[in-house]
Amino acid sequence: MKTLMSNTLRAAGMLAAVLATSAVMTGPGNAAGGEPIHIEREDWSFGGFFGHFDRPQLRRGFQVYKDVCAACHGLSRVYFRNLAEPGGPMFDEASVQALAKDWPNQITDGPNDEGNMFQRPAKLSDPIHGPYKNEQEARFVNNGAYPPDLSNIIKARTIENHDAWYAHVFKMGRDILTGYQEAGADYVHALLVGYTDPPSGFELSEGMHYNKAFPGHQIAMNPPIPPEGAVEYQENAGAKSSLEQNARDVTAFLAWASDPSLESRKRIGWQVMLYLLVTTVLLYIAKHRIWARVKKR
């Protein structure tokens, strides 16, 4: 009687487990939240375990930021001095000093001896300010839209995952094993090259632009880079200017801006890993020898 009961129970347990598994398998796929936007994964020099920035690319990227984006976007968490520091574009200090001095968006300082605030040119130790005094002015100038400060933009954006749950698990495993953290860069790149004509039937509001990558597809930002590229790269800059190239370069530059310690982080990471791996092997051997005394009589 007892065994019969327990057999029945065991069968019930197994059945429940199998049911649960198979049911969820066929369950929620793309149940929720708008149609998924597909964004390609790009190949970034700073991605993965051996990632480091491509110095000429950061310099080209800064040129794009300075000549195009800075007209509307600030970069206030980055200081001019950072542009000369290791791990970044590494411009020489004298040229950064000159750049700071001529930066159109000056620093409000003070109060002076007479008690007044005043404007002065930027120095190495000053932040890279955008053109607007505050959000109100920015919105006022941009028809109510707000061009966000770009210092953290790469870290502050990601790509939403719309996979079914089982694909989700695999993707997660793959991303962890390959160290994929570049969703923000992939998004900003896709945004910059994502301007197209709206599909027929799509209702675009006044002053808005259609963009494949932007959530909701209506963005207030004008296409910042024209198809032929927005800036003239120097002869020795290492690349030809084009929409694709400008977009990649400025994205790489912004990736550095939001994660200036990336290079030392990964370098130290490898040193730490090496130390941990070697010590783990030694500990494994030690454990084996200690336990050999117990196991082998």
Binding site: K155, A156, I176, G184, G269, V272, K287
Partner: peptide
């Protein structure tokens, strides 16, 4: 000690190569 180090390998993996993987992008706004 052995397993603490194996755990530390995973820990360091995230600290140095995937520091933001477990967080939310929105928290950088």
């Amino acid at each position: 000690l052995l397993w603490m180090f194996i755990f530390l390998i995973m820990f360091a993996w995230f600290v140095f190569f995937l520091p933001d993987y477990l967080g939310h992008a929105d928290n950088y706004i």
